[in-house]
Design a protein around this nucleic acid. Structure first.
Lengths: 229, 229
DNA sequence: GTCTATAATTTGATAGAC
DNA sequence: GTCTATCAAATTATAGAC
């Protein structure tokens, strides 16, 4: 069924380890390889054999370290969300950062991050819609263990700032949820839709790069404009 | 690996056919069933056996009508894009519809359509990132056969309208591609991100419905606000 | 820890009766 | 056209040597 190729970086030494290039931490090598394969093909489409080849080991080692494909999938999902969400929450939840500055920083952070890991959002959202257990995993990750106070905290902070700006007549009335959805939509959607956009608009890589640079620059004003009354 | 359940409507008579509820056109029943299963689990995660059960026939019949899973996947993809894109193009490409009206109509159409088929965008964009051949299928569908003039036509029309509005000082300078990406981001992203939003915000169905109604009402103004200089 | 070989299961596809 | 039975290949997982 002719699927996409996995992004190269065959035996790249991503992490830090003494050895010139060989062993490095095997478990880490496997996790890195799994990350790439799961990102590119999704959990259902990923093959243990491909991950083994990508990691430069045999398939049995995958089971030695991770027991089963499901466990490996969980580990990859955990790492993916850890890479993406905490920095975002740190910015959004910081009450010392004003609204305008906050929007700018989030836009820049998201576009920079996703430029490096373009498959990430499609993978994450696909996982969340296809496997209900990932939702619980997400919650668990955000909290340590118990029902989250992290997100409510962020929402409260943002709400306070929105209300203040609204009182000053700078923006229309809106909920923090709507605000966050707007910001995320504008930042993330183009990455998920990239193949469609390239097809519809007959774009090459250069035009894509140019779009990203333009939106990185203009999105903060566009989003703030969308909030004005 | 515990995947999502396929949306019910077990033997629902979606199309038009004389028979009370039984045979109906078998090929159509299979395609409907395949549509539901592919939407919910993606092509890689879909199982021919599940589709057969969903259609109330045996697995051999699937091959009798569609030859292979790949062919069936193509048929589903074709139908999905046919449902989604042409109406959108009809609105966007119509030069008689003014910019403001156009945004409103697109927002309403998209949110109404996706409320009925919430899996559609996630499925489509997932397919397009995972199987390069879908891009060509998409092009072929938009044109009949040869390199498309449909999308360029839409872009030209929209660009003319954007330029006119810009000359009148109503909006900032922007490309039709940026404009369309903004509109699509705002309409489509929440549907792809729904499981994440429900998890992060601890939402139930009612709160989701309420969000959709609110955004259906407010998005046109928000988007037009985003365009203002 | 890592390998080779192989088991066990799943899954797409076909043969052939009706 | 539709079914049952079955095949062949793919894929996850394990046994056991080194």
């Amino acid at each position: 069924m002719a699927a996409v190729r996995v992004a190269g970086k065959a035996a790249g030494k991503a992490s830090a380890q003494p050895e010139p290039d060989r062993p490095a931490d095997t478990e880490q090598r496997i996790l890195d390889a799994a990350h790439r394969v799961f990102m590119a093909r999704g959990t259902a489409g990923a093959r243990m054999q491909d991950i083994a080849r990508e990691a430069g080991v045999n398939q049995a080692l995958l089971h030695y370290y991770f027991r089963s494909k499901e466990r490996l999938a969980e580990a990859v999902f955990r790492r993916a969300t850890s890479d993406l969400l905490p920095p975002l929450i740190a910015i959004l939840g910081d009450p010392r950062i004003g609204l305008r500055d906050k929007v700018t920083r989030v836009v820049h952070h998201e576009i920079d991050q996703l430029s490096r890991t373009p498959y990430l959002p499609g993978y994450l959202l696909g996982e969340l819609s296809q496997y209900p257990q990932r939702g619980e995993q997400l919650i668990a990750l955000l909290t340590g263990i118990r029902p989250s106070t992290v997100v409510p905290g962020v929402l409260e902070t943002v709400e306070r700032q929105l209300r203040a700006a609204q009182r000053k007549g700078e923006i229309r009335a809106t909920t923090p949820q709507d605000f966050l959805i707007t910001v995320m939509s504008m930042c993330i959607f183009p990455f998920i839709a990239r193949p469609m956009l390239e097809t519809l608009f007959q774009w090459n890589d250069e035009q894509w790069t140019s779009l990203l640079a333009r939106r990185r620059r203009e999105l903060p004003e566009i989003i703030l404009g969308a909030l004005r009354r």
